[in-house]
Design a protein around this nucleic acid. Structure first.
Length: 876
RNA sequence: GGGUGCAUAGCUCAGGGGGAGAGCACUACCUUGACACGGUAGGGGUCGUAGGUUCAAAUCCUACUGCACCCA
């Protein structure tokens, strides 16, 4: 084995081995308890980013862990057709050829997109493999494959038949660049510095003016009224009067509506139903006309009169100038406000009137609210329940039609002859009403999230009644980022309830975002993204995974620091070398009978006992989704206990002449290491497999090794306490050596004064530990007639330590060191004695806490006395 | 405007009612036959501020300040 771990070769080798042997494949087995995760499908033509890396690492850890625990574990992968993003990419490609999708026509264009999908669709799944994802590739799905498309048709038709899908002329968010409507949650509100324009609207046949305030003056060309609050005394006399709209010179009414906030602006609001969602609703309440002054390219329409043909921003500039020149502009204030942007292209959204398809949300949301409230679906961390509920309870109808070509085409046909609307899964050849053949399918496609909302059951075979669906639905847990709770999680929940009568997953494990080192979101425009594939190539997939999962708590964001990545790589290397040591010393080892009883050394009993606790703690933390905590426990056990102590103490036994003792050491070493690798496997699948295969083992792969379960019989509290005693002595001696600048190579004489007989026999039995780990020669005595003057001194719970250092001791320095110890002890003692003299503490604190304080007091005061005696002896 | 999270060592972050933790960085020593991607020892924090609950608060509660995010 090479002295440093080289992930490159190892990773490819083992992933191939796993995949070829179908270890990821889950067969339905009614005898075994199912565990199922459906992968949040990444964009089929996208590439892996850190968010994916985190999300899939977490899923893989859970899946590998449950699989080892014996569950029938299925992690179902797949990709998403990502309507806008994919279509935009292909359009870009066409543009480079100097062509447009219109030139090609719909069918040819779609052929191109499918070609693109074939070409790039494998990229991200290939990258997921590099990460080590143990998903069942035999069951890989795509939101536009036949099954998923069938599910989409089924759902659309059923919802339509239930009256939950309708088509309406409505105001929606229009992206002038993507040329499609987008849903409310696809709009990103960004605070932008802007202006608040105060404009006078003259009252007809009067000298009076009504002042309004707006952030979008260009929309005034489409104003059809001005609204004030019904209780607003300032304007009560104007309600019902007519205003003359400046510039346009149209007459518009003053109306009263509760929607108006009298405190905001002037308390009078211009109403533009065609270009503002709130105004739209006001307009409906008051039966106002809808005047469209901005078109789909965000250019002013004919209705804008002189301003027609101008871009919306240019129109604003010129119009404000005119208002000012003609005396209508009162003032312009600076004003920061949230402006809606397209989440895909960041263009400012234009609220636009158009005919669209909607899902009626209220009836669907109700059971979805109930499900979260009574725990059918549980969020981890819990606080996300509130965020989910808040959104669900205030939900608005969902606009599902998109003016795109790439996606699930809406299964609706219109009869040219009689106008009949036909909603059906199979394309009709004639009108069901008039028999006419002039049928035309709705040109729009469905929102991508419409199909991904069905993902947990469409991928398991729905609408067919498959065995997979019966076995794995509801799935166990959904793992996803907190940024798509609304987009996706919510939609899966109400869809699942609507079509499966059960929640799609019992738990939702939410994680944060991966930020850059400065705490900024990683984004293409900032160029601050770190490519997981680069990281895997430089540091290995295991290091990336370990780094992503540690030092982080569920739901919180995580900053990406290369230093932490180095730390994870160093840990992998530490594992590698501990294993290298073990394997090098196992050449003549074949596992035979388990060593029992007296042949076990204290260190053997200790490490084995500690391992049981670690197995228990790791499992407990995985159970509560504290993956970072589980990883931390393994890190500390491996490094600080197994490597730093157990391996060091095993060395003399491995090199010694006692064959039985060597065998015992080999046995415990191999056993503990193998167990540790098994616990580490879900986190670091590659390195653990590579080493596990080199150790004595049973089975084809660590992936299918049984998850370590704590063995009560191996728990050994006395051994742990005794090891503590010895470790404390060893640390104290090392401390002295270091303080006194004793060269590491030099053997030092050590005198241990151990008064208690039981403790003394313990220390006598395992004195070798002290000698090995301190490079010392130890003498143990029950009493000291005369303590050596030329010696450094320390006190532990069990022993007083003297390290004679003839000629090396500076009495002044040693005294000063001891005096400092005393002052530290005094400080601690004062705190403890304060507690112990507190009546309330003694009567109200639990007994074991009081007892602990008493014991501590005794220990520290004993220690203090010993040091003071020593100081006295040194003549201070 | 409403909501959520965060504030702990120089940096990044765990922890969470009874002795302040880790990694990195820092200091000193060490090329010891697993590992310098290493070892040993060490320095460093009134746990954001102010109240409250409690025998006991970094931890629970309230308010405030600052930062981040979400929603309107």
């Amino acid at each position: 084995m090479p002295p440093a771990y080289d992930p490159g070769a190892v990773e490819e080798k083992w992933y191939g081995y796993w995949e070829e042997n179908k270890f990821f494949h889950a067969r339905v087995d009614p005898e075994k308890e199912p565990f199922c995760i459906v992968m949040p499908p990444p964009n089929v033509t996208g590439q892996l980013h850190m968010g994916h890396a985190l999300d899939n690492t977490l899923q893989d850890i859970l899946t590998r862990w449950r699989r080892m625990q014996g569950y029938n574990a299925l992690w179902l992968p797949g990709t998403d057709h990502a309507g806008i993003a994919t279509q935009a990419k292909v359009e870009e490609q066409l543009a480079k050829e100097g062509r447009s999708k219109y030139e090609l026509g719909r069918d040819k264009f779609l052929e191109r997109v499918w070609q693109w999908k074939e070409q790039y669709g494998g990229r991200i799944t290939h990258q997921l493999r590099k990460l080590g994802s143990s998903c069942d590739w035999d069951r890989e799905r795509f939101t536009m494959d036949r099954g998923c498309s069938q599910a989409v048709l089924e759902v659309f038709v059923r919802l339509y038949e239930k009256g939950l899908i309708y088509r309406d002329y409505y105001i929606t968010n229009w992206c002038p660049k993507c040329h499609t409507t987008i849903s409310d949650i696809e709009v990103e509100h960004l605070d932008k510095p802007g202006h608040f324009y105060f404009i006078k609207y003259p009252v007809k046949d009067s000298d009076e003016f009504l002042a309004i305030a707006t952030t979008r003056p260009e929309t005034m060309l489409g104003d059809v009224a001005v609204a004030v609050h019904p209780d607003d005394r300032r304007y009560a006399h104007l309600v019902g009067k007519t205003l003359i709209l400046p510039v346009a010179d149209r007459e518009i009414p003053v109306i009263a509506d509760e929607y108006v906030d009298p405190e905001f602006g002037t308390g009078a609001v211009k109403i533009t139903p065609a270009h503002d969602p709130n105004d739209f609703e006001v307009g409906q309440r008051h039966s106002l006309p809808q005047l469209q002054v901005i078109n789909r390219d965000a250019v002013m329409t004919e209705e804008a009169g002189r301003y027609r043909g101008l871009d919306r921003w240019e129109c604003r500039r010129q119009l404000v100038k005119e208002l000012d020149a003609r005396g209508y502009l009162i003032k312009v204030d600076d004003h920061n406000h949230a402006v809606g942007h397209c989440y895909r292209c960041s263009t400012v959204i234009e609220p636009m009137l158009s005919k669209q398809w909607f899902v009626r949300m209220k009836p669907l949301a109700e059971p979805a609210i109930q499900a979260a409230k009574d725990g059918q679906v549980r969020f981890v961390p819990e606080r996300f329940t509130k965020i989910y509920l808040n959104w669900m309870e205030n939900i608005r109808d969902w606009c599902i039609s998109r003016q795109l070509w790439w996606g699930h085409r809406i299964p609706v046909w219109y009869c040219a002859d009689c106008g009949e609307v036909i909603v059906t899964k199979t394309p009709p050849d004639k009108c069901v009403k008039c028999g006419g053949t002039g049928l035309e399918q709705d040109p729009d496609v469905l929102d991508t999230w419409f199909s991904s909302g069905l993902w947990p059951f469409s991928t398991l075979g729905w609408p067919d009644k498959t065995v997979e669906l019966a076995h794995y639905y509801p799935t166990s847990v959904l793992v996803t980022g907190r940024d798509i709770i609304f987009f996706w999680v919510a939609r899966m929940i109400f869809s699942g309830l609507a079509f499966m009568d059960q929640v799609p997953f019992r738990e939702v494990f939410i994680h944060g975002l991966v930020l850059d080192a400065l705490g900024r979101k990683m984004s293409k425009s900032l160029g601050n993204g770190v490519d997981p594939i680069d990281v895997i190539e430089s540091h290995g997939a295991d290091s990336l995974r370990f780094m992503l999962v540690t030092g982080n708590t569920p739901g919180n964001d995580l900053r990406f620091h290369f230093e932490r990545l180095d730390g994870a790589r160093n840990f992998a290397n530490k594992i590698w070398n501990a294993s290298r040591f073990t394997i090098m010393n196992l050449s003549d080892f074949t596992p035979g009978p388990e060593p029992r009883g007296e042949v076990l050394t204290l260190a053997d009993r200790w490490i084995r006992s500690r391992f049981q606790e670690v197995a228990e703690e790791v499992t407990r933390n995985l159970d509560r989704y504290e993956l970072g905590e589980a990883a931390r426990i393994l890190y500390e056990f491996t490094w600080n206990e197994f490597c730093d102590w157990y391996i060091e103490l095993a060395k003399p036994r491995l090199y010694g002449r006692d064959r039985d003792d060597r065998y015992t050491a080999q046995y415990i070493l191999a056993d503990t290491l193998r167990g540790t690798l098994e616990l580490l496997h879900p986190f670091m699948p590659f390195i653990t497999e590579d080493i596990w295969q080199r150790l004595p083992h049973r089975g084809q792969t660590v992936m299918k090794a049984p998850w370590p379960v704590p063995v009560e019989e191996y728990r050994d509290i006395p051994a742990e306490e005794q090891m503590d005693v010895l470790m404390e002595i060893i640390r104290a001696v090392r401390h002295i050596r270091s303080e006194m600048n004793v060269p590491p190579g030099k053997k030092a004489d050590i005198v241990l004064l151990v008064i208690d007989n039981g403790t003394r026999s313990l220390v006598e039995k395992w004195v070798g530990y002290v000698e090995t780990l301190t490079a010392g020669r130890v003498t143990i005595v029950p009493s000291l007639a005369e303590a050596p003057e030329q010696a450094a001194h320390a006190v532990t719970r069990a022993a007083e330590i003297y390290v004679p250092l003839k000629g090396l001791i500076d009495i002044d320095r040693e005294s000063a060191r001891l005096a400092k110890e005393v002052s530290v002890l005094d400080r601690d003692l004062a705190k403890i004695r304060g507690k112990l003299s507190n009546e309330g503490f003694l009567s109200k604190a639990p007994e074991d806490v009081v007892e602990k304080e008493r014991a501590k007091e005794a220990e520290l005061s004993g220690k203090k006395k010993a040091i003071e005696d020593r100081l006295k002896m040194l003549g201070r």
